[in-house]
Amino acid sequence: MRIQLSQLTKTYKGGVHALKGIDLDVPTGMYGLLGSNGAGKTTLMRILAGLLRPTSGTVRLGGDDVTTKEGRLAVQRTLGYLPQDLGVYPDLTARQFLDYIALLKGLDERPGRRRRIGELLEVVALGEHADRRLKGYSGGMLRRVGIAQALLNDPRLLIVDEPTTGLDPEERIRFRTLLSHLAGERTVLLSTHIVEDVAQTCRYLAVLAKGRLVFQGDVGELVSRADRQVWTVTTSGAAPSTGRVVAALPHGSGMRYRVVAPVPPDPMARPAEPTLEDGYLALMEAAAPV
C-alpha cells in the first residue's frame, strides 16, 4: 500500500505545531521514520491510523483519503497498528485478548478467527503462553501480543510506533527480525528514535525534526551525509570541543572518541567510515538552527 502525504500539517489546541507541511511518498515494503522525541512521529502515525485529523493537507493510503470518514473506515479495515503506548487487559489471556480485538476488527466467523489467532500466536512465538493471563507477561511478550493484534486482519499497512523501546537486546533483535519478515507485500512503517532499528531493517527512510521532514531517501544516501565528517581522536586530554562526540571508549591510558564534525576536530584526528547513526547526526546538525 502506497502512502502519499501532501502539505500535511497538524496544530494542536494551544497552538503547538506538531507537523509542518509534510510531503512524503512511502512505497510498499519496510520504511523507517526516524526522529528524536517530540519530532512529530507519533502525531504522524496517529493521523495515518485515523486517530487524529490533520489540520490541513492530504493523506492518501492506497487511494483512500483518511481525512474523510469513508476513507478512514476503508483504511482501518486494512490497517494494523501497534501504538507506542500499547496496553492490554491484564485479566485476559493472550488468546482472549486477541479474540476480543479480532471481533472488533470484524473477524466474525469463529473457526476462521480461532485459526488465525492460533497462527499468529505461533508467528510471535507465544503459542505455549497463549492461555496465561497477560498480567504475567514481560514487556517483550506484550509487544509481541501487540504485533499479533495488529496482524489479525492481515493488514496491507502495518504501522508500528517505537516498538522496541524498553526491550532488552535479545527481544529487540527478535522483534526487528519479525518486522522484516512481515514486510513482503505489505507496507510496514516503523517509527522510532533508535537509529539501529532502522539500520537493521529498512532500505528507505524519512527523518522528522521539530515537525518538519528533513530527509527522505534510501539508507545509503543518509549515510553519505556524513561522508568526510566522521573522525576518531585518540587522546589522554579533554574530549574534542568541535563537532559532536558519538562514542567514547577507553583506550590505553587515554580515550578514543568518535566525532561527527565538518572539519577535523583535532590535529590528530583520523577519518572514519560513516554509519547510519553518523549520517543521522550530521543531518540533525545541519538541520539545527544556528
Binding site: 473506515l73 497498528y81 500499547l86 496496553g87 492490554v88 470484524g106
Partner: peptide, 19 residues
C-alpha cells in the same frame, strides 16, 4: 484509556457507538 487499550480499539473499524 488508562490501560492504553483505547488506541488500538479506536484504530479498528468497529463502530465506536456500538462498542
Amino acid at each position: 484509556r488508562r490501560l492504553g487499550v483505547a488506541t488500538i480499539m479506536d484504530a479498528s473499524s468497529a463502530n465506536p457507538l456500538g462498542r
